[in-house]
Amino acid sequence: MLPDSAFDKEGFLRELDDWSPAVAEQLAAAEGIALGAAHWEVIELLRDYYRQFESSPAMRPLVKYCALKLGPDKGKSIYLMSLFPGSPAKLGSKIAGLPKPDNCL
Protein backbone atom coordinates (compact mmCIF):
# COMPACT_ATOMS: atom_id res chain seq x y z
CA MET A 1 0.00 0.00 0.00
CA LEU A 2 1.30 3.41 -0.97
CA PRO A 3 0.79 6.24 1.54
CA ASP A 4 -1.70 9.02 0.79
CA SER A 5 1.18 11.33 -0.02
CA ALA A 6 1.87 9.28 -3.17
CA PHE A 7 -1.37 10.63 -4.66
CA ASP A 8 -2.47 14.15 -5.56
CA LYS A 9 -5.65 15.65 -4.17
CA GLU A 10 -7.72 14.13 -6.96
CA GLY A 11 -6.23 10.72 -6.24
CA PHE A 12 -3.89 10.52 -9.24
CA LEU A 13 -0.52 8.89 -8.68
CA ARG A 14 2.20 11.57 -8.49
CA GLU A 15 5.08 9.42 -9.77
CA LEU A 16 4.57 7.20 -12.80
CA ASP A 17 7.29 4.86 -11.58
CA ASP A 18 5.40 4.13 -8.35
CA TRP A 19 2.78 2.18 -10.28
CA SER A 20 2.40 -1.58 -9.97
CA PRO A 21 -0.57 -3.93 -10.36
CA ALA A 22 -0.95 -3.79 -6.58
CA VAL A 23 -1.15 -0.01 -6.75
CA ALA A 24 -3.82 -0.37 -9.45
CA GLU A 25 -5.82 -2.58 -7.06
CA GLN A 26 -5.44 0.08 -4.37
CA LEU A 27 -6.54 2.87 -6.73
CA ALA A 28 -9.48 0.80 -8.01
CA ALA A 29 -10.62 -0.10 -4.50
CA ALA A 30 -10.66 3.61 -3.62
CA GLU A 31 -13.05 4.07 -6.56
CA GLY A 32 -15.17 1.08 -5.57
CA ILE A 33 -14.11 -1.00 -8.58
CA ALA A 34 -13.08 -4.66 -8.39
CA LEU A 35 -10.64 -5.26 -11.24
CA GLY A 36 -11.39 -8.16 -13.58
CA ALA A 37 -9.68 -9.37 -16.74
CA ALA A 38 -11.58 -6.85 -18.89
CA HIS A 39 -10.36 -4.00 -16.68
CA TRP A 40 -6.76 -5.18 -16.88
CA GLU A 41 -6.96 -5.35 -20.66
CA VAL A 42 -7.94 -1.66 -20.79
CA ILE A 43 -5.39 -0.68 -18.11
CA GLU A 44 -2.61 -2.27 -20.17
CA LEU A 45 -3.96 -0.51 -23.25
CA LEU A 46 -3.92 2.84 -21.44
CA ARG A 47 -0.33 2.28 -20.39
CA ASP A 48 0.57 1.35 -23.98
CA TYR A 49 -1.11 4.54 -25.16
CA TYR A 50 0.91 6.57 -22.71
CA ARG A 51 4.16 4.90 -23.78
CA GLN A 52 3.35 5.57 -27.43
CA PHE A 53 2.09 9.15 -27.18
CA GLU A 54 3.39 10.46 -23.82
CA SER A 55 -0.07 11.58 -22.82
CA SER A 56 -3.22 10.14 -21.31
CA PRO A 57 -6.03 9.89 -23.83
CA ALA A 58 -9.25 11.88 -23.74
CA MET A 59 -12.41 9.85 -24.29
CA ARG A 60 -12.56 10.05 -28.06
CA PRO A 61 -9.00 8.87 -28.78
CA LEU A 62 -9.37 6.19 -26.11
CA VAL A 63 -12.42 4.78 -27.89
CA LYS A 64 -10.60 4.86 -31.24
CA TYR A 65 -7.48 3.28 -29.77
CA CYS A 66 -9.57 0.49 -28.18
CA ALA A 67 -11.26 -0.16 -31.51
CA LEU A 68 -7.85 -0.30 -33.15
CA LYS A 69 -6.20 -2.60 -30.60
CA LEU A 70 -9.05 -4.62 -29.10
CA GLY A 71 -11.52 -4.71 -31.95
CA PRO A 72 -14.74 -2.86 -32.76
CA ASP A 73 -16.81 -4.53 -30.00
CA LYS A 74 -14.62 -3.02 -27.32
CA GLY A 75 -13.99 0.26 -29.12
CA LYS A 76 -17.25 1.68 -27.84
CA SER A 77 -17.82 4.22 -25.13
CA ILE A 78 -20.64 2.13 -23.65
CA TYR A 79 -18.23 -0.79 -23.15
CA LEU A 80 -15.67 1.47 -21.46
CA MET A 81 -18.41 3.05 -19.34
CA SER A 82 -19.38 -0.40 -18.08
CA LEU A 83 -15.82 -0.94 -16.83
CA PHE A 84 -15.00 2.54 -15.59
CA PRO A 85 -18.31 4.28 -14.90
CA GLY A 86 -18.69 8.01 -15.25
CA SER A 87 -15.58 9.14 -17.04
CA PRO A 88 -13.68 6.12 -18.40
CA ALA A 89 -10.70 8.08 -19.76
CA LYS A 90 -10.14 9.87 -16.46
CA LEU A 91 -10.90 6.94 -14.18
CA GLY A 92 -9.00 4.44 -16.32
CA SER A 93 -5.95 6.71 -16.49
CA LYS A 94 -6.06 7.14 -12.73
CA ILE A 95 -6.09 3.39 -12.07
CA ALA A 96 -3.41 2.85 -14.74
CA GLY A 97 -1.19 5.23 -12.77
CA LEU A 98 -1.14 7.85 -15.51
CA PRO A 99 -1.58 11.63 -15.25
CA LYS A 100 -5.05 13.09 -15.53
CA PRO A 101 -5.89 13.47 -19.22
CA ASP A 102 -5.79 17.07 -20.37
CA ASN A 103 -7.77 18.26 -23.36
CA CYS A 104 -10.75 16.73 -21.58
CA LEU A 105 -13.27 19.19 -22.94
Binding site: F53, E54, S55, P61, K64, Y65
Partner: peptide, 15 residues
Amino acid sequence: TRSHRRVLDSLPLYG
Protein backbone atom coordinates in the same frame (compact mmCIF):
# COMPACT_ATOMS: atom_id res chain seq x y z
CA THR B 1 7.99 18.14 -21.02
CA ARG B 2 6.38 15.77 -23.49
CA SER B 3 7.72 14.87 -26.90
CA HIS B 4 5.91 17.15 -29.30
CA ARG B 5 6.19 14.61 -32.08
CA ARG B 6 4.50 11.94 -30.00
CA VAL B 7 1.55 14.22 -29.34
CA LEU B 8 1.40 14.93 -33.08
CA ASP B 9 1.39 11.19 -33.71
CA SER B 10 -1.78 10.89 -31.61
CA LEU B 11 -3.72 13.45 -33.68
CA PRO B 12 -5.46 10.90 -35.95
CA LEU B 13 -7.07 9.41 -32.84
CA TYR B 14 -8.59 12.83 -32.18
CA GLY B 15 -9.98 12.94 -35.72
